[in-house]
Design a protein around this nucleic acid. Structure first.
Lengths: 278, 278
DNA sequence: TAACCTCTGTACCAGTTGTTCCGGAAATGT
DNA sequence: ACATTTCCGGAACAACTGGTACAGAGGTTA
């Protein structure tokens, strides 16, 4: 029998699997390796497939029988338990192939996350969350070409936990109709990353002139919007590729959403009961 | 059944065990818990006892049958393998210092990223990127209440590297005007996470019926859309908070964007160098 | 639309497993 | 040393598991 862990075999064989067999594969990877120790009936049922399909699946992996498959699983588990330090992420970085793309990309993302956690002072982060949570004044969000989607995501969540949340089109500059119901004491969250958008700066300037508390979420090089911002959350977006990774901005906003939800849990749960979609 | 891990039960029951039963107990503790997943014959042989003795042993532990004993063992292992994700959350019980929030949140995100990299076979990921990069057929994106923002972000990027990218309103179900210019051979990327949206399923079904290649980006529990999907990219979204973290979906799409950009660029230069048709 | 092919679940068979029973061995007390 | 009790393992039995053949469903092509 060829070498390789069961998990690696699943990945390798995935392409030649049929639809139902893939469901079984995903089911195995989902709770790996425990479900593999169950009898075929339970193993297949958990993936919503029939026992026969599960059998064909293990055959595709190269095992002669289901017990043989389980034996391999046991040996593998034994290896992992015997080396207490190898636990977790110590997987051999097999080079050469491009099929490691996801691994490499995520690895880099992890680096960015750590760098960002170091760069953002928790006092700044907390201040933003607290301000949004107290619910005083409206909360306006807007971003640039790509970051607008992040603004939209944040808006969708904040709407559930407090009133007065709205997203305005930052690229339409400082059009008056947008700024009509902006009042002093409001909060604005601006997203701007490299290739900084001049129109965002203009809009932010207008808001700042109206005594709006401006929060800027930007990259490590800091958007010029910072001139008008009370608080800046700089995120590490470094990557060696064509575009920078906005992933960390997204992560920061999701952390902000979670934290803000914690801070005003009472009013949030009130709204969740009412604001469910159709 | 009374509480307690299998291992603790062994220790607790040790005194009332007979000589041969104790050998079995020691054998189990020696390579715990792997040997327990073997059939009784092998399990007992490894301790130099008979099968009958091993059966009496598990009866002494309080289990009604050998399969029941194995089931308990599996559940226990499942808890242990899930714990690494909970380790990031094991810290928070100290609520006095909340200034670690960002650190904790990002730490958990890192765990989710690793889990996702393990769960998504690279062949699946590559298949999606290749299909989008080749530019044949249109590419439709849509998502649910929150994930719609991720669809929008992806759309904004894909528009730059290939034609025929558009986002449709997945929550408007399968309205005909949306499906008018959908052709067989097109590709659709569907986003759906827990609290799965029935309308997304409906839309995906309509697309699949029209021979559209459906790609599903979902969470670890797998949206029912998977029934109509050719490829599924399951992302780990686990968190102990009110909402799951869609961060990993975002990360996966950003990786997809980066990879697809690479592929487009490579194929472009290939055409120039080799003059390869089709 | 119709024919074809692949895929998938059901039904059934065979093999193995778990379980029990009982004879004998070992140990203990008299 | 004998009797009694406890314990152990081999063997028979029954339940269940894994394996396979088959037919229907779904999708693809002409």
């Amino acid at each position: 029998m060829e070498p390789g862990t069961v998990e690696s075999r699943v990945h390798e064989a995935m392409h030649r699997l049929t639809a139902a067999e893939k469901r079984v594969a995903r089911g195995l990877l989902a709770n790996y390796p425990t479900i593999g120790f169950a009898p075929v009936a339970e193993f297949s049922r958990q993936s919503g497939a029939s026992a026969a399909t599960a059998l064909r699946f293990v055959a595709q992996l190269g095992y002669g029988s289901y017990p043989e498959f389980q034996r391999a699983l046991r040996q593998e588990l034994e290896e992992r338990v015997k080396s207490p330090l190898q636990r977790g992420l110590a997987r051999p970085p097999a080079p050469g192939r491009d099929d490691q793309f996801l691994d490499r990309f995520f690895h880099q993302a992890v680096g960015n996350l750590h760098a960002t956690a170091r760069r953002i002072p928790s006092s700044e982060f907390e201040a933003v969350c607290a301000r949004i949570a107290d619910g005083k004044g409206a909360c306006h969000l807007f971003g640039g070409r790509f970051t607008d989607a992040i603004a939209a995501y944040t808006e969708a969540h904040l709407r559930l936990i407090r009133p007065g949340v709205r997203r305005l089109d930052g690229r339409a500059s400082s059009r008056n109709d947008q700024l009509l119901d902006v009042k002093p004491g409001d909060t604005a969250i601006v997203f701007d990353v490299r290739r900084y958008d001049p129109q965002l700066v203009a809009t932010a300037a207008s808001l700042a002139a109206r005594r709006v508390f401006v929060v800027l979420v930007t990259d490590a090089w800091i958007s010029p919007v910072s001139r008008h911002a009370k608080i800046v959350l700089p995120c590490e977006t470094g990557t060696d590729r064509t575009w920078d990774a906005n992933l960390v901005l997204f992560a920061t906003m999701e952390a902000l959403i979670a934290r803000t939800t914690e801070l005003c849990w009472a009013s949030a749960s009130n709204r969740m009961g009412l604001g469910e979609p159709s």
